[in-house]
């Protein structure tokens, strides 16, 4: 799921989701990048409104770690 996080990150940082952008982020995280997968991801996300999709995420974490902190 690194690839999707990379896409989210690029998007939230205000950048455009391109192969280069995703690859740069993945490289920085020391992920062994597969070009085809990056291509597929960029292609699949074309035409998707990420902000809209996130705002529709109608689920919220339930069991918060009570011991947290």
């Amino acid at each position: 799921m690194e690839y999707v996080y990379a896409a989210l990150l690029v998007h939230k940082a205000g950048g455009e989701i391109t192969e280069d952008a995703i690859k740069a982020v993945l490289n920085a995280a020391n992920v062994d990048v597969e070009d085809t997968r990056v291509k597929a991801l960029v292609s699949a996300l074309e035409g998707i409104d990420i902000d809209d999709a996130l705002s529709k995420a109608t689920v919220i974490p339930q069991a918060a770690p009570a011991a947290a902190g």
Binding site: E2, Y3, V4, T36, R37, A40, L41, S43, A44
Partner: peptide, 8 residues
């Protein structure tokens, strides 16, 4: 992205 090749 469920039906694409984009997913790990």
């Amino acid at each position: 992205l469920a039906d694409t090749d984009a997913l790990d």
